[in-house]
């Protein structure tokens, strides 16, 4: 699988990741190399194999659906780039 510069742009957009135009060539080349490397996984010998998401057989722990955390909004917002009246500020989304 070889990726074009346009492919890289599209993937970067999906990841909301700014990539400079001048770096597109090198990303396309490096990502293509990495994908070529992982193609070793190819072949159909795994068709009947169940995917493994977790190395140890265990089930997700459950807990009662009750509030377990205290409100620490001010504490957590103290490290935010921009807040006002308990809200995180971002550029206007709706005109």
């Amino acid at each position: 699988m070889s990726l074009s510069n346009d492919d890289v742009k599209q993937i970067a957009h999906l990841a909301r990741l700014g990539v400079d135009d001048q770096d597109l060539d090198s990303y396309a080349r490096e990502l293509s190399n990495i994908l070529a490397f992982v193609e070793a996984l190819g072949g159909d010998e795994t068709d009947a194999v169940e995917p493994l998401a977790h190395p140890i057989d265990m089930v997700q722990r459950l807990r009662p659906d009750a509030v377990s955390e205290e409100n620490q909004r001010e504490h957590f917002q103290a490290i935010a780039p921009s807040v006002e009246a308990g809200l995180y500020l971002v550029p206007r989304v709706i005109e």
Partner: peptide, 29 residues
Amino acid sequence: KRRILVGTYALSAGYYDAYYLKAQKVRRL
């Protein structure tokens, strides 16, 4: 950035089975 891009690609529609699912199967092996 490289890894975010590779991961985004591997999880994107149309490629998930070929990469991520395949890798999870190999993980079991």
